[in-house]
């Protein structure tokens, strides 16, 4: 269940807008931040808040890459899987991440810290190969850099 304050603030937010639907993604992100991922329960709550049916919310939720319908780790690594990054060594970056974290693409580490997901172009071609970790960009990646990033995050966790 959502905490009351959060619920009320969302409701206020929605009340101020003509078509509640417009806020669907925002509401989903809020719920996702709260729950860690958008659970079935969260979809139903979002539907209720937005005056939509759970299906309509799920149609949007399953469509977007950054809305997680399945549990993810604390840090979600979106490694860019598009043309420019391919040219600049996406394969090795992905492989490096996989070996470092000892997981495959789409999986979460056993300690629940990292989830590795490929993503279509995130718009940081200038810094390719790039990745996003919890909405923060890391560019010009190489194995050493990845090491240090991961170490840093592990330490923070």
């Amino acid at each position: 269940m959502l905490p009351k304050e959060l619920r009320e603030s969302l409701k206020d937010h929605i009340a101020n807008i003509d078509h509640p639907r417009e806020l669907a993604v925002d509401v989903m992100f809020t719920l996702q931040d709260h729950y860690g991922y958008l659970s079935d329960e969260a979809v139903k709550e979002a539907a209720e808040l937005l005056e939509m049916t759970p299906l309509e919310v799920d149609e949007i939720a399953t469509f977007y890459t950054f809305v997680y319908r399945e549990p993810v780790g604390k840090y979600v690594i979106h490694v860019c899987d598009s043309v420019i990054c391919w040219m600049d060594g996406y394969e090795s970056i992905k492989d490096c991440l996989c070996t470092k974290l000892a997981i495959n693409v789409g999986e979460t580490t056993a300690d629940g810290l990292f989830t590795l997901l490929p993503v279509c172009c995130i718009g940081y071609c200038d810094m390719s190969p790039a990745m996003l970790i919890n909405r923060k960009v890391y560019g010009h990646l190489n194995p050493e850099k990845i090491d240090s990033i991961l170490e840093k995050l592990k330490a923070e966790a």
């Binding site: 079935d40 979809v43 939509m52 049916t53 759970p54 299906l55 309509e56 799920d58 149609e59 399953t62 469509f63």
Partner: peptide, 19 residues
């Protein structure tokens, strides 16, 4: 009616209900 629709995208598009 609003309880059947398309979920997911691309090659995995699924037509059905929420549950």
């Amino acid at each position: 009616y609003r309880d059947l629709g398309a979920m997911q995208s691309a090659n995995r598009t699924y037509f059905g209900r929420f549950t």
